[in-house]
């Protein structure tokens, strides 16, 4: 584990190219400098969590990965390809998907149509994609004709996850998947995250709930006002003094 303050330990020799790499990324909103020299990697099949307090830049990081906002400096690469100047749809076509903050479902559209939007770049969804998602969330099949906006918070979370999985992503970005869920549903949603991860999907999960997310993650990063302050294997992060004080409340 490293306390990040400038120096970055170079990969040990012939480390394989990570699935996603952010290299010295600076992201601005107008004049406001949000992400400051951010370096971050997600390996193929890896589950990485990104922790940090409110307004630390977690959502901005995911938006930078997706190309919703563009970094002013630095680069984003996916599977070794520099995608910094590529459009969001190009990136999603390459194998990214997101469960956005607050879910952002298409409220006046049905559950089925929401799932179809998730597979927009993949022909609106083959039968096997629907089957895969319906196996994970049988409720979505039952409710496929219901308008997404009329579902409960927990159900909406399933739609948001299902919608992202329709894209058959190699890298799944999740922005606070447990927000607004009752404790039992938080547990359930982390079980599903684990299950999806075990099926080989790499994930970058943003969470306020550090304890639960570190318990299933391989590695973690901690952001504070747009800078990385900690990174390392999840097991070590869980024991880290500062993190415990700041986020784990013990």
């Amino acid at each position: 584990m490293t306390d990040v303050d400038g120096e970055q330990d170079a990969g040990n020799g012939a480390a394989p190219e990570p699935l996603l790499r952010l290299d010295a990324v600076d992201t601005f909103y107008g004049p406001i400098h949000i992400l400051q020299g951010l370096n971050l990697e997600v390996g193929a099949g890896e589950l990485v969590c990104l922790l940090g307090g409110n307004a630390s830049g977690k959502s901005t990081t995911l938006k930078t990965v997706l190309g919703i906002v563009r970094p002013r400096n630095g680069s984003v690469s996916f599977e070794g390809e520099d995608i910094t100047s590529r459009s969001t749809s190009y990136r999603i076509g390459k194998g990214m998907a997101i469960v956005p903050e607050n879910r952002r479902l298409f409220g006046p559209m049905t559950v089925l149509e929401n799932l179809e939007m998730g597979a927009y770049l993949h022909g609106g969804g083959a039968k096997e994609d629907f089957d895969r998602v319906y196996t994970l969330f049988p409720l979505l099949h039952e409710r496929r004709k219901q308008l997404a906006g009329t579902m409960s918070g927990g159900e909406q979370q399933m739609v948001a996850m299902g919608r992202a999985l329709m894209a058959k992503p190699k890298l799944l970005l999740m922005d606070e998947p447990s927000m607004g869920l009752a404790p039992i549903l938080v547990e359930r949603s982390f079980e599903i995250i684990k299950q999806v991860h075990e099926s080989g999907v790499a994930m970058l999960v943003v969470e306020q709930n550090a304890n639960v997310s570190l318990s299933i993650a391989d590695r973690g990063y901690v952001l504070s006002t747009g800078r990385l302050v900690l990174e390392g294997p999840a097991a070590e992060l869980r024991e880290h003094e500062d993190l415990r004080k700041a986020y784990l409340g013990r």
Partner: peptide, 11 residues
């Protein structure tokens, strides 16, 4: 309904 969310789907 939500232009940014639509672009997040690759639209």
């Amino acid at each position: 309904f939500d232009r940014e969310a639509a672009s997040m789907m690759g639209i």
